[in-house]
């Protein structure tokens, strides 16, 4: 569930780095260049990128803007089609039999078998319904903070990567030690933190 829902799960990030050119022009360019688009080629993913926070079918931000005051609010959409291995196996056996009859050979080479399997996977992908995952990402440009609405580390790593490619900025997860380094003012306290060892408080 995202930031507009009644309840939300999220991880906080520091947005590290600076945009040297005109800020909002660079943001627009990053959003447009990283917008959701279909992906051709092998693999389970058939599309990924930024969509509107309020409409995950809008990758042109026609119905709503991505700018809310000083926030940039987007959703990251990932479409995946996974064809079960057994389904591929069934089709592979049928197609292999046909191919062997046409070739007049007793068996396929390993590269022929691999190519046949891949072509079956690609043809089945076009027939299957994708699984669509949508994760809200809110960037507070005033505080250089961002909030990513998922607990899935795998999805977050994808979003961190896509954010970097889109805007040239790094998302640093605000885990306690890193947040502590930010909150502490004096070099002396930061050094004490670096040297800190776990406390044993079992009586």
């Amino acid at each position: 569930m995202g930031f507009l829902a009644r309840s939300v799960s999220f991880v906080r990030y520091h947005v590290k780095g600076a945009i040297e050119t005109s800020f909002w022009d660079a943001v627009r360019e990053g959003v447009v260049n990283g917008a959701f688009r279909p992906k051709e080629g092998p693999g389970d993913e058939i599309g990924f990128g930024w969509v509107s926070l309020q409409d995950f079918d809008d990758n042109e931000f026609a119905s709503s803007s991505y700018i809310y005051g000083s926030y940039v609010a987007l959703s990251y959409r990932l479409d995946v089609v996974r064809i079960p291995a057994r389904v591929i196996e069934v089709h592979f056996k049928r197609e292999k039999k046909k191919a062997l009859e046409q070739l007049g050979r007793p068996r396929l080479s390993s590269s022929q078998a691999r190519d046949l399997k891949e072509s079956i996977r690609e043809s089945l992908k076009a027939q299957a319904f994708p699984s669509i995952q949508v994760v809200d990402v809110v960037w507070d440009t005033g505080k250089s903070m961002a909030y990513v609405a998922t607990q899935s580390q795998r999805l977050r790593e994808r979003i961190e990567d896509h954010f970097k490619k889109s805007f040239g900025l790094t998302l640093v997860p605000m885990i306690p030690f890193i947040r502590a380094e930010q909150l502490l003012r004096s070099a002396q306290d930061k050094e004490k933190l670096a040297q800190l060892k776990p406390e044993s408080w079992a009586p």
Partner: peptide, 29 residues
Amino acid sequence: SWLSFSGFRPPATLPMDSTESPEPDALFL
């Protein structure tokens, strides 16, 4: 270990489908 938050529930805000729907921008902000 992540200082991350799940099931975060702030105080109730106006529902989007109430008769006097707030603007989505206002709800988000």
